[in-house]
Design a protein around this nucleic acid. Structure first.
Lengths: 246, 246
DNA sequence: CGGCTGATTGATCCCGGTCAAATGAGGTGG
DNA sequence: CCACCTCATTTGACCGGGATCAATCAGCCG
């Protein structure tokens, strides 16, 4: 993790924004400058943002995993998305008054917080930066739509497989996939809350995926043995991630 | 529907943007000016945008209903959102290359299309307009997240009730609710595709809602007899719509 | 009148939930 | 080093919400 104030092309935030929309050199420098000023750390299992909190900061995630979720009055919980290194939480969120969901870490994380003035200063410095953050927001909607399809119209096996394919691609673009394996710090309870299933059924679905030789999941590390085959069973098409910058 | 070039505060787009973020008089005038230039019409059941189309225009919906949806290879369809009068489709979408989902009308619609240059000219004229459209985008993510909860963690009765509560609020803000009734041009097949249920089960769920006296749905018109009670059964909290401008 | 789309009903089935218990893997303190 | 606790995974038995299949019915239109 590079956090000095020299220019880095290899840091996940820059990698991701570059995949969404090409950053200029000046834009890259501006982002690295901002990140070099201050970063924050949090441990695993901490609630960084709670529903009802004031919505006043944009957060840039540099390492570790987090998730967004909501809980219903009776305790049912739905994870609505994961937050991976290089991803930005809610550009322009300060235009709203309060947060309508919560954010919690799954692992220790390093991130940066920008208040309205800092964020607006950053995006006003370079058009490509402003455009890249707008793309981040558009991509977030697009991912959220795909999750609706996953939850509404795919069965358990397809859902779990789809989630894995998506995480694979999102991690790959920031360089966190090693061949066909990546760190996967998600408990079966978390997977259940992300896919709208019960933990018991997630467990059985994982066994099915293992039995068919598609994946190995052990010691918080996920290996996808045949990505094409997994995409087929999931009916996964990566277009909606908009990470190709055609 | 007022579409002359005088300033109207009462047209749905202005009403909605004002609810998301207060528009200045200059901003209101700029929007009315743009709308006065050209509007388009389409009939019911037309596909306005198809997955794979070039993403080059921002669309402002002025009247009628449409929906966004995706279909899986084997024909399963999921409606990921409805589009109501006053709602804007994808500010800044031209930053992407292609559409990852389709948009079809449910009724005849009137809308306006802005290419990149026109849209950027509009938002550069007035800060409040730029901010309001950014709020529209943020609200779209927020709604999409709530749909994930609906699909993942609510049962059939709650899902259908929740959808009705949401549409009630979204229509109310643009003045399309008359007391406790509104036009509801959604077939049971559409409702099924929006809630991730089968048409048969939607039909039975509607009967349950009718039997409990919560709603009347007849001749494409929905009446909510006890909105509070419907909110309770749906566990509906309107915060996520961000239409209050506190 | 026939054809079409949408709403309704009945019968049956199954995917995935629920409940309950067992197993395993750290982590900690005596 | 072991007893104990907690948290995650796994397994088995049973149940039920909602899907599927297949008619029927109702309104509308050419």
């Amino acid at each position: 993790m590079l956090l000095g104030n020299e220019i880095s092309q290899d840091q996940p935030l820059v990698r991701r924004l570059n995949a969404l929309r090409r950053l200029s050199d000046a834009g890259t420098a501006a982002i690295n400058q901002v990140l070099s000023e201050k970063t924050l750390k949090a441990g695993a299992g901490e609630e960084l943002v709670s529903e009802g909190d004031r919505a006043d900061r944009v957060r840039l995630f540099l390492s570790g995993w987090a998730c967004r979720y909501k809980v219903l009055e009776d305790g049912r919980r739905q994870i609505v998305n994961f937050i991976l290194p290089g991803e930005t939480c809610d550009p322009h969120i300060y235009l709203f008054s309060t947060m309508d969901h919560s954010i919690a870490t799954l692992t220790p994380v390093i991130y940066s917080e920008l208040e309205r003035a800092s964020f607006e200063r950053l995006v006003s410095m370079d058009t490509s930066v402003a455009e890249a953050f707008n793309c981040e927001t558009l991509a977030a909607i697009s991912v959220q739509r795909e999750w609706a399809i996953n939850l509404g119209r795919r069965d358990a096996l397809e859902r779990v497989a789809h989630m894995m394919c998506e995480l694979f691609e999102r991690l790959r673009v920031v360089g966190l996939v090693d061949r066909n394996s990546f760190a996967f710090p998600v408990t079966q309870t978390d997977m259940a809350d992300a896919t709208g299933l019960s933990t018991v059924h997630v467990n059985r679905t994982l066994q099915e995926l293992r039995a068919s030789g598609l994946i190995t999941l052990k010691d918080r590390s996920l290996t996808i043995h045949d990505f094409q085959a997994l995409c087929t069973t999931a009916m996964f098409n990566p277009n909606y991630l908009h990470l190709d910058r055609k």
